[in-house]
Amino acid sequence: MKWTSVFFLTCISLCATLSTDRAAAADRWFGEGDSLFGTARFFEAAVAYERSYFLSEDAQQRVLVNLAKAEALKQMGEFSRARNDLQRSLTFYGNDSLRKEVNYQVALCAYLDGDASGARSLLMRLRRTFEEVPSSRQFLLEGLVLVDLAEWDDLRGHLMEWFREHADGPAEKERLLQAYDALLNKWGGPPEMLDPGRARMWSTFVPGSGQVYAGSAGWGVLNAFSQVLALGGFGLLVYNGTYIASVVAGLGPFQSFYFGGIRQAGTLAGEKNKSRLEGFRAALGEFLLDVAVQMNE
């Protein structure tokens, strides 16, 4: 019996020694990562953090290292990798504030990576998991995601909730809402989207009108004029009795201008939508960031 105890004690000593050394090495690499991060050597810092993660056997420390590595990757613009790395810590069931931080950071990285839908579902899960008032930065991220998804109706309700929870009193809340309304008035409300199909249809029946509908009157006039010119050439050549030439040099360019004009009208409408939406989104995003700064002051 006693010899068995000796065996187990020996094993325990071995494991304890190994663990202690690995933990010390994990701490050392964590510190190394922090100092590299401090000197803006983000790639090297990410490697050092990963090494600490690799060596560490403490679940909480692994989460902390993972968060630090995500910061380094974000500095490098590697949002997708930061998101993937953080997902390793989603299964952590310890400290609530750490879990919340990991979930928030995953959502933030998804948003920065251009996946607004993914970020939204992560933020919804964050709300359901932690049934408490979200922080101001979470409200900000949710707002930015709604702007990206062009969910204008939800955005107003979201802002009201944000201002109610975090604004410095009802007067401040009212002032911020008025600022939001002023911004909407300046833009004439959320941009109305042009229908590329309608633009194409207009150009099918009235050459150039689809371009005018898409807000590009110059292109419309040019396209209509080109078609008239080609048809004129066709008529002139027929009048002169050069029938083959009239088809090749008259109808050929005409059909190119005609069908090309229809396609162009649809493209212009799509581009117009994109530029309008981008401008409005940028203005809203700037407003939300300003609000977040004011809330923090």
């Binding site: 105890s5 071995l14 050394d21 090495a25």
Partner: peptide, 24 residues
């Protein structure tokens, strides 16, 4: 006697492991 043996084994086991994961 057995206690001494135990200590001996533990001590011998720990010596080569010192600094195993030091990294440098």
């Amino acid at each position: 006697m057995k206690g001494n043996v135990l200590l001996f084994i533990v001590a011998v086991a720990m010596v080569p492991l010192t600094g195993f994961a030091g990294g440098h």
